[in-house]
Amino acid sequence: MKLRLTADMLVDEVLERVETLSGQKLRACYQCGRCSAGCPVVEEMDIIPSEVIRLLQLGQVDEVLSSKTIWICASCLQCASRCPKGVEFSSICDALRAIVLRTRLATPKIDADGLTRVMMSDAPQMGVVGALRKLNG
């Protein structure tokens, strides 16, 4: 594995979008990994939260946008709560989802079948509304 790094890879429209949408400064993250260490769903992620930020720091936007991670995050805010640098990964994650959904890079997470299933389930309303807002935009 090799990454040939160039200066212009580090200035990217989408990267800027991530920063403005999330309100977070990517370079503020010093890669302590605490966000990943405390995440309750990290087991299921293909790229752990701190690595997502690292990849963004290295300009690797595509890899991040196509990751499973951003759809697994449960928005529990534990990462943000304990980050020593005040970086909210949860907000970065929301921003990444928003970018994917708004630019239609992928279809909404819950498809037509899923929607029927969701509507029929006995899950509380707020869970359904929450999921649709987070995962379908």
């Binding site: 990994g33 605490r34 990943s36 260490a37 405390g38 087991e43 701190s50 304990r82």
Partner: peptide, 26 residues
């Protein structure tokens, strides 16, 4: 290499939730 997020006691042990940022594993 990583910062521990949480420590708690369970079954007489001190449970440590950390991460290794070098291998990308919790």
């Amino acid at each position: 290499r990583g910062k521990v997020s949480k420590i708690f006691e369970e079954d007489g042990k001190v449970m440590v939730w950390g991460v290794d940022t070098l291998s990308g594993k919790k």
